[in-house]
């Protein structure tokens, strides 16, 4: 056989496989919101409300596509080319990395919207079994011997990183900023953890369905969801005296919206998240609203709690990530052999 025919066949077939991808062109405008796991229902409602408003003000039809998954995985998909118009993730670190790895958003993205670009917040609370049989009231109860604590692996779960940082922040504030004592505290805490699921929903399953553990460290909105959906007669929420302010941030993905010509609607969409209508929806889905008027209306739902921020205690996500969760960081040291 002639070798050049072999080459031609090879090339033709390769090209044929690569073609045929750009077929579907949608009518009207579509926006892709790439988000993390537990926001599915929240954004379904927000999107419907915004699409209606957008239709009224601009006459344009707007369709939303939503993508949900672990926050880090979603950020990597965007870095690798998933054309998200907006990202709404669990932690600022993931959007920082989108900026750093792919330059799809500018480095100062978080300054563009009010409240650190976090339209709603949450915090870290405890879920215990009905009647609180182990009398767990605050962070210090979690490190007592014989208490079994459920939380996910902070190396694979963004949500679980908030849990870890909340524990560390508590310990630091109660030891006069003694890092050694804080490290000792989280070490004892994680010694009480029998299973480290890879994601936050996984650890909820372990606690709720498998009946393992005395206390689940969880996002407040997830804890509410667990109690409301799985029965008020089985679990109760314990709110510690202090915890971390979890600020899930949002951002427009600049290079994508400029390419697709969706900047105007994408920015309006994120602005909408800070309006009374959207804040109300967020509160309904158990996220703490930012707006005072909505806050007042939901004052009963959200227990008052002394909240510290990641910037106050850790100097931001970049520093926290590097010190605690990078390979060889504090979390790894907890599991160093021979300890």
């Amino acid at each position: 056989m002639k070798p050049n025919r072999l080459v031609t066949t090879t090339i033709l077939l390769s090209l044929a496989m690569m073609g045929s991808t750009r077929l579907a062109a949608a009518k009207g405008t579509t926006l892709l919101n790439v988000s993390y796991d537990p926001t599915r229902e929240l954004y379904q409602e927000v999107n419907a409300a915004f699409a209606k408003q957008w239709k009224e003000t601009s006459g344009e039809d707007l369709t939303f596509r939503q993508s949900h998954g672990g926050s880090g995985k979603q950020a990597r998909a965007v870095i690798d080319g998933l054309e998200a118009d907006v990202v709404t993730l669990a932690l600022a670190y993931d959007i920082d990395e989108i900026a750093e790895q792919s330059q799809l958003v500018p480095a100062d993205w978080q300054k563009r919207l009010p409240n650190n670009s976090s339209p709603y917040t949450s915090t870290i609370v405890f879920l215990v079994r009905k009647g609180n049989p182990k009398a767990i009231k605050d962070w210090d109860d979690l490190v007592k011997p014989g208490i079994s604590v459920i939380t996910a692996n902070p190396k694979t779960s963004g949500g679980a990183r908030w849990n870890y940082l909340a524990a560390w922040g508590h310990a630091l504030r109660h030891s006069g900023n003694d890092e050694r004592k804080a490290k000792d505290f989280v070490t004892r805490l994680y010694k009480n953890v029998p299973v480290l699921d890879s994601g936050a929903r996984g650890s909820t399953t372990t606690f709720v369905e498998r009946g393992i553990g005395d206390v689940l460290i969880a996002w407040e909105n997830e804890a509410f969801l667990a109690v409301n959906e799985l029965g008020k007669d089985k679990f109760e929420i314990v709110v510690p005296a202090e915890s971390i302010l979890a600020e899930p941030p949002v951002s427009v993905v600049d290079k994508v919206v400029d390419k697709r010509g969706t900047r105007k609607v994408a920015e309006a969409y994120l602005q909408f998240l800070f309006t009374e209508a959207a804040q109300e929806i967020a509160a309904k889905h158990f996220y703490r609203p930012r707006l005072d008027s909505v806050k007042a209306r939901y004052a009963e739902q959200f227990t008052k709690i002394d909240l510290f921020t990641i910037d106050d205690v850790f100097g931001g996500w970049q520093k926290a990530q590097k010190k605690h969760f990078a390979d060889g960081g504090v979390f790894d040291q907890i599991y160093q052999p021979g300890r």
């Binding site: 995985k73 750093e100 694979t156 969760f325 390979d327 790894d332 599991y335």
Partner: peptide, 27 residues
């Protein structure tokens, strides 16, 4: 595997999980 292993560092972490761990750090 990740559901049944418990993912305890040094004890029940499979190699694919270690790879995912690295990816979570954008490494």
């Amino acid at each position: 595997v990740v559901f049944i292993s418990g993912n305890m560092p040094m004890k029940t972490e499979i190699t694919p999980l270690v790879i995912v761990t690295k990816l979570e750090q954008y490494d």
